[in-house]
Amino acid sequence: VKRVINTTDEETRRQINQILMFPDESAGCLMTIEYADLHSGISVEEAIKKVRRISPERESIETLFITDHERHLVGTLNIRDLLAAKDSTMIGEIMDANVISVHTHENQAEVADKFKKYDFFMMPVVDNEDRLVGMITIDDIIDVIEEETTEDIYKMAAMQPIEDSYMQTGVLTLARKRFAWLAILMISATFTGLIIEKFQSALAVNVLLATFIPMLMDTSGNAGSQSAVSVIRATVLDEIAFKDTFKVIWKEFRISMITGLGVSLLNFIRVYVMYKSMPIACVVSITLFFSVVAAKIVGCTLPLIATKLKLDPAIMASPLITTIVDAVALLVYFNIAALILPGI
């Protein structure tokens, strides 16, 4: 970078230094300074001459950014509207004054959200004083969306994101990025083991109870993951926020009642047909119902809490929710078994 700066002219050096000052993953780092701008006080004839002169050096001239004498962004102008206007018309008369811009320190994820919301192909970037300093194009945003999506996928699978492609990343690097979460989840699973150990006397009395533990844990974990993924997607798309927590819980509660009742009835028939035991079928089915309800409430609540705490909601996805729900399912299971089955 220093070599490039030393070999450039003063104006280019100033612009490069300006970009280097911005935080990582900010609009300032993402923007290009190869934008086309016009002064609001010039005529269409003068503007067309300037566009012809600067167009070879600009990344795009489809949208022209209009500034005042202090370089404040005051409007935008489509190149088609410029060419269709009379030569004597002033730029300030035909520009669109309703400008949507991004700030240099705005996070790239927020910039991507604006592109998706307004269907823009490019967007101006302004500084603290609303002076035009650059622009961001849709090509840059596509890269950001891909990067953010990839990062979320890794987090939802309890892995740290990698910067290079899978084949270019070394084995030790991949192992290191996976080990931390595996260790955390392994330690958290200790609570599940403690619950089983506490109720080992119940398992000793009725060994058949142990055969249903994997099914109960898997089903409740899957139910929680379904809610979590739905809420995370809605949060990312700005469809819901933390203030909608109770509405989301009420909706997921109704969903859990329907799905929980369905899988419980199906499981009741299966267990009774296979084992010819009404008490066991009742214990397993009732546990399954309450576990699904609890799992969906936990699954929809944790991502919203993460958003409120300024954390990535993807962190609260499948692995963490599954660990919590497993413990809840076991507690419900053994307590219901103690109520229904004699001698436990």
Results as ranks from 00 to 15, higher is better:
103 H>C: 06
303 P>D: 02
147 E>Q: 15
113 D>V: 12
144 V>D: 07
242 F>A: 09
201 S>I: 09
111 V>A: 05
137 T>M: 12
305 I>E: 00
273 V>N: 03
1 V>T: 13
42 I>S: 02
231 V>W: 11
309 L>F: 02
230 S>N: 13
170 G>F: 15
308 K>T: 02
185 L>R: 03
257 M>G: 01
97 A>K: 03
175 A>Y: 09
321 I>E: 06
265 L>D: 00
25 E>P: 01
112 A>W: 07
84 A>C: 03
158 A>Q: 08
52 R>M: 11
54 I>P: 07
193 G>V: 06
144 V>L: 10
221 G>H: 07
209 L>V: 01
271 V>I: 13
172 L>E: 07
321 I>N: 04
122 M>R: 13
11 E>V: 07
316 M>Y: 01
97 A>P: 00
69 H>C: 04
178 R>S: 09
229 V>I: 15
70 E>H: 14
55 S>P: 01
239 E>P: 06
124 P>V: 10
205 V>Q: 03
111 V>G: 06
206 N>Y: 06
341 L>C: 05
282 C>S: 04
275 Y>A: 05
169 T>Y: 12
89 T>G: 00
129 E>Q: 13
307 T>R: 05
330 L>I: 06
115 F>D: 10
81 D>Q: 07
192 T>H: 02
271 V>W: 06
230 S>L: 15
22 F>E: 07
215 M>T: 11
163 E>T: 15
224 G>N: 11
21 M>G: 12
118 Y>G: 06
304 L>H: 03
83 L>M: 12
251 K>F: 14
311 L>W: 01
4 V>N: 10
250 W>V: 06
227 S>R: 09
194 L>F: 12
289 F>H: 02
283 V>P: 02
322 T>R: 00
237 L>F: 15
218 D>I: 13
